[in-house]
Each structure stands twice: as C-alpha cells, then as structure tokens.
Amino acid sequence: MQEFYIECITWETTFNLDSEITLYVRHGGAAFRICYDPRILAVSPSVLDQHHESYRILHNDNPDGEFLEVAERLRKPFEELMTQMAPPMESIRHLHSYLYPPWFILEASVAKSSSHIQPHFKLALSRQEFMRPGDYVTNNFLQAHLSPLLNSKLNQYSSRQVQVLAQTPQLVPSRVLVDGTVYFFKPWVSGRVHGYHELQSYRKILADTKASPPLLADARICRLYGLIIDNDDDVLQHYPLDNGEEDHSGTRLVGLLLTCIENRGTLKDLAPWDDCTNEDRLRWSGQIHHAVECLHNAGVIWGDAKPENVLIDMEGDAWLIDFGGSYTPGWVDEDKRETVEGDWQGVQRIDDWLTRWSRQPVTRIKRSGEGEGRRQGESFEGGKEVGL
C-alpha cells in the first residue's frame, strides 16, 4: 500500500494560538493541502483546546518526538478521504504525474460537542494557484548558465518521456528510464542558488570531455546526460484556468538526468563498519584523490568535499557526487570554499577521518595542485543537498 508522506507543515512563527495549521501531504498519485482553522474548530471547545496544544508543540519545535506525533495525529483523520480521492500509483509511471499531480484542498471541521475531526473536501487547485516546479528558461539568471548546455545539443526531454523506476522514502522519483537508459533524476529547485554552480560544473565537464576525451575518461564522477524541460500548456491541461484570469505559460527547466550510481551507500555510511577493511579505505582514498585531480585538470572544483558526497558502488569503488559548490564546516574552511586548495583540504580531512576507523594511517602522495589557493568559478551562498 502506498505510504502517506508529509512534505511540510506551516503555521504562524510569531506565537498566536489563533494560527491556522496546514499540512502538505503526498499520497498515491495526488497531493493534498490539509487545513486546520481554529475559527472552524471553535464550535467544539475540546477540539479547539487540542488544536492549541498542537500549535504550542509545533511552535516550540519540541525535540522529544512530539512534533512528529502531532503531524501524524493531524494527518490521520484524512487517511480514508485521501485514499478515496488519490489516483492509483502504478509501479512504473511517467515523471509528469509526479511533477504535476492533482492538488486537493481538504479542511478539518467538527460537529458541536463532538471531539472528532470530520474531514471535508473543499476544492481542487486551479492552474493559477498551482506552484509550478522548476524555473522558466527565460529567467535571466538561469539563461547565463543554461544557454551553453542548450547550445551544446545536450539531450532534452519532456517529463512525459521519463519513466519512474524507483523513489526515495520521501516519494520523490530517483531512478528513471529514458530511451532505454537508466539515470538518476535530480529535481531543479527554483531559487536554489548553488544549482547554478552545479550547471556550470557540468558544462565544464561536458566541454572538456569532448575537447580532450582522456582527461576525464576514467574519473568516477557524476555527470550530466540530459535536461528535462516542460511546456506549461502541455503538462497543465488538467488544471483549469480561473474565470477571467489570463494564463502565463512558458517553458521550464524541471530536472536533470545524471549518472545513476547503483550503490551500497555513502562513504560516511560504510567506512566506520567493522566489515570494512583497511584495504577498502586505502582504495577509496586513492580513488577520491584521482577523481579530484581529474576535476581540477578540467577546471572544475568539487566544492563540498566530505564523506557524504562520496558514493560507494556495488563493486566497492568510490564516486564523487554533488558539484553544487558551497562548503561544510569541519571539512572545508569558509575562506577556502570553492577553491583548489579547499578541495585538497577536504580530501586531506577525509583521509584523516578514514584513519580514525583504520588500524594504520591512510596516507597519500601530494598531488599537483595541492596547497594552491587559486579560486575557480563563482562563489555562491546556500546550503547543500546530497541528490544521489
């Protein structure tokens, strides 16, 4: 049976017991917005008291597990209604059904003197209200980074051409099939600044792979193989326009097709285990050093060097992922972020970290470029997200 997944919960951050609480939930082939309005719940004092208590816990962000308990308690009364309304989710379906699901707004109501929530369907979202994924390709900031990829004749697909083979626990498509080849799908998130840095890195990797094939041929790194670009008119046909409102349609970048690395887990997951040998750790260290040197020779900075951004494939080899720039404190110093020197600092700290789990030091020969402080590419602010 398909699980329910709570994508987020919203409430007023300034303390206010009259605040509404809204849940955003995925289930089956649909998305739901569940609204708890204290003005509606006020007909039942006991239900209103419970709503106030839920708000207090959410507002305090209680670390003792009560937050999750509240989220589940608020979702639970709507399970049956969501199951009735959601289209079934097939084992293999197209990506557009995830990106553009039917959205339904549900509302909590209650009878007088009752202590039970009565789930109520309010309405379905129109096209004007639907928050469209991705960014318009005409966005001036995106254009500067996307145009070279579009001009390079990189493969482009619509989400209707992409079949979903697997999902993350958050119900986000991960492994996908396009033209008989399996890729990793990474959604393009609007406003995620280091995404532009990532496009720049993949553009350099593509350009140098074509210009000098041996340069990156044997580097185990994540690569870009295609762009998923959708036309609003095509994918939003089932979202009606509000009466009298004008549609503003366009073409949007909604995702990237990357190397699909069938893996056992990240370096952080695997290196500490007792069944991991010193030979494994030494081999991974060597592979990381080699991949970083290949990237630098191609003019690309890894950026966020840390064990979470190294995947170990099913054959036991290490792959570098996530070229979105930025840095993680403890692995790379802020003043060395997105530099050659910062990458080698991160690599050395990964070696030191591997040594903690080994019975002998993990030592490497210093590579060309280690210790150099030359900055390559632009510097971006923003958090990190491991997409693979």
Rank of each mutant, 00 (worst) to 15 (best):
W353N: 12
S115A: 15
P133W: 06
Q200C: 01
A111K: 09
M1T: 11
Y196W: 09
R364Q: 06
Y202Q: 02
R75T: 06
F141K: 07
D233M: 10
S159W: 07
C8R: 08
I228T: 07
R56M: 03
Q50M: 08
S158K: 05
D230T: 01
D269F: 02
R367Q: 10
A30H: 01
L48E: 05
G191T: 06
P187W: 08
E12V: 05
V300F: 02
V254A: 04
E69R: 03
N151L: 03
H120E: 14
T14N: 11
Y196R: 12
A318G: 01
P148M: 14
E79D: 11
F4R: 14
L106Y: 09
Y225F: 14
R56F: 00
P88R: 13
S201I: 03
S54C: 06
R337P: 06
V164I: 15
S46Q: 15
V110D: 15
K366M: 09
R337T: 06
G65E: 08
P133S: 03
E341A: 14
G265F: 12
K153A: 15
L320N: 02
H59P: 10
G226C: 14
F184Q: 14
A219E: 00
F32K: 14
D179W: 02
V162W: 03
P361S: 10
S109C: 09
F380R: 09
S174T: 03
R73E: 12
L58A: 07
F78R: 11
E69F: 00
L41T: 01
F78L: 10
L106W: 10
N155L: 11
A219H: 02
T355V: 10
A144N: 11
L171K: 09
Q167F: 05
R283G: 04
S147Q: 08
H296E: 10
Q161A: 12
L253P: 00
E69K: 05
T339V: 00
E3K: 09
T83V: 04
S109F: 02
V347F: 06
I21E: 02
L68Y: 00
Q167M: 15
W11G: 05
A211C: 02
A108V: 12
G325I: 05
L95Y: 06
G250W: 07
E385T: 14
H145N: 01
